[in-house]
């Protein structure tokens, strides 16, 4: 009888210690996540350059920051600003999924968003107004391609708070397709 009681007591203590350790680990994880810097990585259009994403991930890893990828969705004039955008979301979700997977593979904490606006700039303003970002990493578009133009980047420097890193458009490199094509 005594042995049974002792075994039971040991089991209860062990289970309690396990639960406490799991709780402590979770709290520590939450604290670490709460204190982590947040890097905004806005994306527009159907495709995302892999070198740009790789660079953003490198920056996030170096800063031990959370990379928040945000798809900026323009709302057509004939729709109200708070309209649901199924077609845009069809484009956005595989991209965000692919970015999240790339971030996990690179050991970088990530989060994702879709933000609406009449224009990309308007969507960015909305996003910045609602959430805190310590840094914004923007991939400039090659001339004529959809994305952030030089004028957009200049506007961002003027309007957005915090540090802004502009990634120069570059070659995808041999065998490297834009991310949307890979994700689709």
């Amino acid at each position: 009888m005594t042995i049974v009681l002792v075994v039971l007591a040991v089991a209860v203590v062990a289970a309690g210690a396990g639960a406490w350790a799991a709780l402590a680990a979770r709290r520590s994880r939450d604290r670490a996540a709460a204190g982590r810097a947040r890097i905004l990585f806005p994306i527009v259009g159907r495709a995302l350059s892999r070198p740009a994403l790789d660079a953003a991930l490198r920056i996030a890893r170096a800063e031990n920051a959370t990379l928040v990828a945000c798809y900026l969705a323009p709302v057509p004039l004939h729709l109200p600003l708070d309209a649901a955008l199924a077609r845009e979301c069809e484009l956005a979700l595989p991209l965000l999924e692919a970015i999240e997977q790339a971030a996990t593979a690179a050991g970088v904490a990530s989060d994702t968003r879709i933000e609406r606006g009449r224009t990309y700039r308007h969507a960015l303003l909305e996003l910045i107004a609602h959430e805190r970002y310590d840094q914004i990493v923007v991939a400039a578009a090659p001339e004529g391609a959809p994305g952030f133009t030089a004028a957009d980047v200049a506007w961002l420097l003027h309007r957005a708070p915090g540090e802004i890193v502009v990634l120069r458009p570059g070659d995808e490199g041999p065998g490297r397709r834009p991310l949307a094509a890979a994700a689709a």
């Binding site: 939450d30 996540a33 709460a34 969705a73 708070d82 649901a84 955008l85 199924a86 845009e88 979301c89 989060d111 968003r113 879709i114 933000e115 609406r116 609602h130 959430e131 805190r132």
Partner: peptide, 18 residues
């Protein structure tokens, strides 16, 4: 604060998705 921010982000995501 972190939870409130995440909840707001989810609210906006829900709205854009309908």
């Amino acid at each position: 604060a972190e939870e409130r921010e995440q909840l707001e982000a989810l609210r906006r995501l829900a709205s854009v998705l309908g």
